[in-house]
Write a protein that binds this DNA or RNA. Structure first.
Lengths: 202, 202, 202, 202
DNA sequence: CATGAATGAGGCTTCATTCAT
DNA sequence: AATGAATGAAGCCTCATTCAT
């Protein structure tokens, strides 16, 4: 059923160590993305981790908790990444480029499974959990809006920061479905393309 | 469970009449998007349509068939829309604008549920059906690539048509998650924003 | 599913004309034997007959009624056959041979499906119907017991008629599972073999 | 629905212990024979065993697997019985008598349900499984044919071994439908009657 | 009489979760 | 913590039967 039978082929997801918990979350992120949350059974997951299905419930109360944990770890790790992107950039243009670059990494790299699951399985989580997760995303988005507002203030950006952010978020998130890291376009080039979409040529 | 208890609140999806089949597909598109395919039971669906669950299987062989039919109708209807967009435009710039506008309509309008389901529930369909559906999408995408290639030939577009299309597809598809039709930005303005992302200012 | 798609290949069962009723019963006897009663759907049956499933219920009240009618017709037709077998024989030995021969015909010939169904699907019919059918079989069996009793009285038969009848019934009924009419053993030879089982050599 | 509500009234079937698997198979053999395979629901079966219906599927993959297992165990156990019958007999006559006796035991005793199911529900199993089961029966039948061939070689048997076997199989198998163990005829007497059918008086 | 869409009860099977060992 | 058998609710689908046309 599953195309994955061991964890060895799943890259270490950012921030997750080799503890049982970490191994479950990495396997879950992968399976939830490739098969879908509902179509992944706890037995599928246990098999990939190399334990029995009953044992999962010593680490997580419910299957939904596993899903939420995947999402949380994804947000948490990328929050740090974004923060760093802003802090290491000097000036809005470079900061924005850093953000784009970082978000592309987050989508196309080791946290890609988690970020995809965050979007695609969003309404598998209860409203309560949705609220919690939305709160976590809020300051994540705040980085973007702040940088875009700065860019606008400096005349770099011609349009509304909010709308620009949304359009960029769509373009970036979708790369998961087509971009190949070892294809003809480098990640730097892709970053520049997206940056140009936001700010125009030059 | 379902927030929807009758079909009356679901707009007529493009091309689907009031036949039992059409009513099932409209309800399915809506439920599959709001609840997810796996989390929508055939009883949920039947209740919204106003029939018994067993009766669904007079019109469709399996639940998966319903999903595929939703996707097919979505593709089919929008194929015609895209074709018209290209035909009624004179010159690549106008054709491209028409395409963007048409795809925004397709995402934000009455076929939005179907198009979202097409993306979000993609791996709920069997590989065989995936192949069929991909074949249908192919000439849909061909419209875009042709127009973008023309734009490039005329110097309107500075980058690779394929990549540009993917970035636009992401930006446009994501609007479903944030754009409000009765908000401050009109669809025409949104169209222009996306067009500017593709071609730059002016 | 069914290996039969038309009635043309099913021989006319004894006593059943080409009326709708007769055609249904012949098809039913065949399908019930080859697939089993429960595994044969009324749609299967209707398709072979060449009508719609709903139309079956103009001729029979329920599916079970069809099964019972098959059984009844089988018994009724073979009752006449047995009667004739007894009447045309002179002396117990010839009468017994005639009965054996007639019952082999009934199992291996055109009523074989019905007779097999009578045995194999016996507990698909309600107790009430079972009683009715048992009553019909009673005088059928009376022919046998009478002839065997006569044979015993004449010293032809060494054992209890009742037990002898049961053993013969088993041997004869089982022929359906192995005897081939166009094989090396003729029906007359088979008849003699069974007769010898009953009466011993000579 | 079921006339049986506990396992206590079902005799231990040959070779089956009190493991969950054994208890399921014994209950299944009984229910499948008395109600028919299709008319026995997995809930019926679970109730008799004293477990929940879902638990059945920890021991057997499908309902059909349960049927096949019943058949297999029946064949396997009786294979050993037949082998012993041949080995403990000296000379074809005694061997044949032992076989008859053993098969009567197998039909009328604790494996009777399984053997009946084997015959009556034969076409409820898939062609693949039929092949497997036929292969198992093959060497079972080989015992009979060998002994009958020996008998023929010694002049004890006047007719073809194959045909004789089939007639005996029918007579023996049918005893399930009429013979009462605590009736006027002992099993030994019945055995002798069948033996006489095969070899003639003396 | 025939049709065929609709019914709705019920069947098999799956699966997250529990718990005694 | 781990196991794995057991649970029991719920899911998809089938099918005999009905009935308006």
């Amino acid at each position: 059923m599953s195309a994955v039978s061991s964890l060895s082929s799943i890259p270490l997801m950012g921030g997750l160590d080799d503890s049982p918990r970490g191994r479950v979350l990495r396997a879950a992120a992968h399976l939830f993305r490739t098969q879908g949350y509902e179509r992944t059974t706890v037995r599928d997951l246990a098999k990939v981790v190399g334990i029995q299905s009953g044992s999962l419930f010593h680490h997580f109360k419910t299957k939904e908790d596993i899903l939420c944990a995947v999402m949380e770890e994804g947000i948490r790790f990328n929050h740090d990444r974004m923060k760093e992107a802003v802090e290491t950039g000097t000036g809005p243009r470079q900061q924005l480029r850093n953000l784009i670059r970082a978000e592309l990494e987050s989508i196309l790299g080791e946290t890609g499974d988690a970020m995809t699951v965050l979007v695609y399985e969003w309404n598998a989580v209860s409203p309560d959990k949705q609220r919690e997760l939305l709160a976590m995303r809020e300051d994540y988005e705040a980085f973007w809006l702040q940088v875009l507002a700065d860019a606008r203030a400096q005349g770099l950006l011609r349009h509304d920061p909010f709308i620009t952010r949304r359009l960029l978020a769509g373009a970036i998130g979708w790369t998961r479905n087509w971009y190949k890291r070892n294809g003809p376009v480098t990640l730097e080039q892709l970053t520049d393309l997206v940056l140009e979409m936001a700010l125009g040529p030059q």
